[in-house]
Amino acid sequence: MSLTQIQTLTMFVDDQERAREFYADVLGFEVRTDLAMGDNRWLEVAPPGAATAIVLHRPFPGAAAGTSAGTILASSDLDADVERLRAAGVSVDGPNELPWGRQATFADPDGNGYVLSAAG
């Protein structure tokens, strides 16, 4: 195999516009692609400069929004990011000191769970 990276991850969301606002306005992600494709919309967001993006997509048949958990986002200033999320009305657990480092957890408006991990 010649696999070199993870290009995108898909998060299922019920309301793509609400998700776009959360990821862009609250998390500070850039909107890389926002295209209508018939009845579908390809909405791709990522932290500035990141190689891997998240596709905010309506659930596929048999899937449900808000069922993803455990995606880890690296933070160069965990405390500031936690405070910024809380100021935006996001419920955040932590930061917590764990054997492997400091982290906090939160969810997007659909309930997809994230871990904020102190970088380096």
Rank of each mutant, 00 (worst) to 15 (best):
M1T: 12
M1E: 12
S2P: 10
Q5T: 14
I6K: 12
T8R: 15
M11A: 14
M11I: 15
D14W: 02
D14N: 13
D15F: 04
D15R: 02
R18S: 09
R18T: 12
A19I: 03
R20C: 09
R20H: 07
R20G: 03
F22I: 04
F22Y: 09
Y23R: 04
L27W: 08
L27M: 15
G28P: 09
E30W: 07
V31M: 06
D34M: 07
L35T: 13
M37V: 13
D39T: 15
D39F: 07
W42P: 06
L43P: 04
E44L: 15
V45M: 06
A46D: 07
P47Q: 15
T52D: 08
I54N: 05
I54E: 05
H57R: 08
H57V: 00
F60C: 00
F60Q: 10
F60V: 05
F60A: 13
G62H: 00
G62N: 03
A63P: 07
G66K: 01
G66S: 05
G70H: 04
A74L: 15
S75H: 00
S76C: 11
D77T: 10
L78H: 03
D79T: 11
E83H: 10
R84L: 04
L85E: 07
A87R: 14
A87M: 07
A88G: 05
G94N: 08
P95L: 07
G101V: 09
R102M: 13
F106Q: 01
A107Y: 01
A107K: 11
D108Q: 00
P109Y: 02
P109D: 05
D110Y: 02
G111Q: 03
N112E: 01
G113P: 00
L116G: 03
L116W: 04
G120S: 11
